[in-house]
């Protein structure tokens, strides 16, 4: 299992008709003023991760972290460059979204399991474990909308993490639920990570990254500022947060 990115870039179009409205778009086309601009949400990413790596991704809002994760998860296609992934991927992006409020917890669990690519047999076998892990035994036939938001995340986490993925993608979800569940989910994570998976993890908490990760990727405005051993990069990043100056070896302008 591995992940390899080579000069990866993801482009959004801004200023096309969806972005500025149909009327303005046509007007600008007629006047020939119109220039749809490209916006590179992620640009020039190159790094490689091996079995057992735990990558922390740091950077301000809008640095391109989510776009990068979605591309690695295969939801988005690179506009340029290359990405290679080997292994079964589980992406926990914004837990709790994409469920259907009207359907029961049981129906939602099966649907989500199917969406994540589990087989029918596997779901029938693991369903009791999922519900037990999420501590929702008494809610199985309730409509999903009646669950509290903590319960929703617990269910989403349980479905996603009851298998052992080769590549685990986390978008700030290490803190799910209340105290006891938090501990349980962290243990679960540790066993997946300890089992040799590649983990990618976005966080704004630098101490957390320092504690958990062996590698760190630092993004700023879609560019890769640094990639390397975690303490080294975090030190640079903290320096940057204090001085607001990017390292001299790198200039984005």
């Amino acid at each position: 299992m591995k992940i390899k990115l080579d000069n990866l870039g993801i482009k959004y179009m801004i200023g096309d008709f969806k972005n500025i409205g149909f009327k303005d778009y046509v007007m600008q086309k007629i006047k020939k003023q119109h220039i749809a601009k490209e916006f590179w949400a992620v640009d020039g990413m190159s790094f490689e991760l091996q079995k057992g790596d735990f990558l922390g991704i740091a950077g301000k809002n809008g640095a391109g972290k989510s776009t990068l994760l979605k591309t690695i998860a295969g939801i988005m296609q690179p506009s340029r460059g290359n990405i290679e992934t080997e292994g079964k991927i589980a992406a926990l992006l914004e837990l709790g979204t994409g469920f259907d409020g009207e359907m029961t917890v049981r129906e939602n669990t099966f649907l989500r399991g199917a969406l994540m690519g589990y087989t029918r047999e596997f779901m029938h076998e693991t369903y009791p474990d999922i519900i037990a892990f999420a501590e929702l035994e008494n809610f199985q036939d309730r409509p999903f909308r009646q669950l509290s938001s903590g319960m929703k995340s617990r269910l989403a986490f349980s479905i996603a993490c009851l298998v052992k993925p080769d590549i685990l993608i986390l978008d700030e979800v290490l803190s799910v639920g209340d105290g006891s569940f938090k501990q349980k989910s962290e243990e679960r994570m540790k066993s997946i990570i300890g089992g040799g998976a590649i983990t990618l993890f976005v966080s704004h908490s630098l101490p957390q990254i320092r504690k958990l990760c062996n590698k760190v990727l630092w993004l700023d405005k879609g560019k890769q500022i640094a990639f390397g051993e975690s303490n080294e990069v975090i030190d640079q990043y903290e320096q940057f947060l204090k001085t607001k100056k990017l390292p001299e070896s790198f200039s984005i302008w």
């Binding site: 259907d100 009207e102 359907m103 129906e107 649907l111 199917a114 690519g117 087989t119 029918r120």
Partner: peptide, 17 residues
């Protein structure tokens, strides 16, 4: 499996509630 679950959802949802 996914397809079956989606059909079930779409069919049932029509008359939910």
């Amino acid at each position: 499996f996914l397809f079956e679950e989606l059909v079930k959802r779409d069919f049932k949802k029509r008359y939910k509630r």
